[in-house]
């Protein structure tokens, strides 16, 4: 075939809206019939990545289930900003119990539905990275290994933002948080710590695991939709920016999330039953420095003096992700060249 396909970026991209594609393929948010699961009036910060991610994820789940959905929420920003007494943003049945038990509460809901012979109503559990990878991890792992019919979504902004930006098990090395201050020889969060919740989820050999970011909301919607077409324990880990905790302008939330993907800092992939089954390729690879410099939580890597060694270490992490998940096709992949490029 020699024919050249025209690129209509409006349809080829996953940009929200997508009015030009056929109705079935359009994003959930582009439709007037969207559920508005988190409706307007909530108290999230300007540019909150979690509010955006949760809205897209839940509306997609609502569409996939025809609105037949129950959500259980961990304590955290999402819970606090959505339910200031006596108001609630939630347009679906929603329960908040504790910080660490959202996955177990979800299990309870699913068990109750099963006991009642209700095979149509579905369950989503959700929480931030603290409620998922730290305090809620035992409950999450239990839910996974029992293969309970729950989709758990983690909105990962890489620290305890609700309590004022403290380090979590998802905080990346070198990041400033109020409990990993930007002082000393290795400022910010320590190296050699932290965990990949999605890979651990995958190790449970559950039917579906995916990562996503708010940079590609259509992808997030598609993954939620796919997750809702499957029974059993499912996990989606969504990287969400936090203007307050990351030190980014509210207007930069999507841009910084995209940088996380394009640098290889945050690999976007899907997996099933223990194996990675698909990855989102990096289209325009960028050095991690672009990502780091966009956020004041990494400012100490550049000011008052540039910390090349530490920047290199962050780059090495991104390189490893790219290698490990095959985020760039082998032909294009030249770490040496990239280092030169990125080291400017």
């Amino acid at each position: 075939m020699t024919a050249t396909r025209l690129k209509y970026f409006q349809t080829g991209s996953f940009a929200a809206g997508n009015r030009l594609v056929n109705p079935e393929s359009r994003s959930v948010q582009s439709g007037a019939e969207r559920a508005n699961a988190i409706t307007c009036g909530h108290r999230a910060c300007q540019g909150c990545g979690e509010a955006l991610g949760a809205r897209y994820a839940l509306d997609a789940a609502m569409r996939a289930t025809g609105g037949d959905l129950i959500a259980a929420n961990a304590t955290g920003c999402l819970e606090v900003f959505s339910t200031p007494y006596p108001e609630s943003s939630w347009q679906l049945p929603w329960i908040h119990s504790l910080f660490g038990n959202a996955a177990a509460v979800s299990t309870g809901i699913a068990a109750a539905l099963r006991a009642k012979g209700n095979t149509h109503t579905r369950v989503v559990g959700q929480g931030g990275d603290g409620g998922t990878v730290d305090i809620g991890f035992a409950c999450l792992s239990g839910m996974f290994e029992r293969d309970d019919d729950v989709l758990f979504i983690c909105y990962d902004n890489e620290a305890y933002m609700n309590t004022g930006v403290q380090r979590s098990g998802a905080t990346p090395p070198a990041a400033f948080t109020t409990t990993t201050q930007a002082v000393g020889e290795e400022p910010g969060a320590p190296w050699g710590q932290g965990k990949s919740a999605p890979l651990i989820a995958l190790a449970h050999e559950i039917p579906y695991v995916a990562t996503a970011t708010i940079a590609d909301l259509r992808d997030l919607e598609a993954k939620v939709q796919r997750a809702m077409s499957i029974r059993g324990a499912r996990y989606i880990h969504v990287l969400v920016t936090c203007p307050l905790g990351w030190g980014t302008p509210s207007s930069d939330s999507l841009r910084v999330a995209r940088l996380a993907v394009e640098t290889g800092i945050f690999p976007v992939w899907e997996g099933a039953y223990g194996d990675v089954t698909a990855v989102t390729k990096i289209r325009h690879r960028l050095p991690v420095e672009d990502y780091l410099q966009a956020q004041t939580r990494f400012r100490h890597l550049f000011k008052p003096r540039r910390r090349d060694a530490l920047i290199e270490r962050v780059q090495a992490r991104a390189d490893r992700n790219i290698r490990r998940f095959g985020l760039i096709d082998p032909v294009e992949y030249d770490p040496v060249a990239l280092h030169v490029e990125g080291g400017s």
Binding site: I70, N101, V105, A115, K116
Partner: peptide, 12 residues
């Protein structure tokens, strides 16, 4: 107790 909470809130 958390599973019991979720189940009870779902009417079980």
């Amino acid at each position: 107790m958390s599973v019991a909470i979720g189940a009870s809130a779902t009417g079980a």
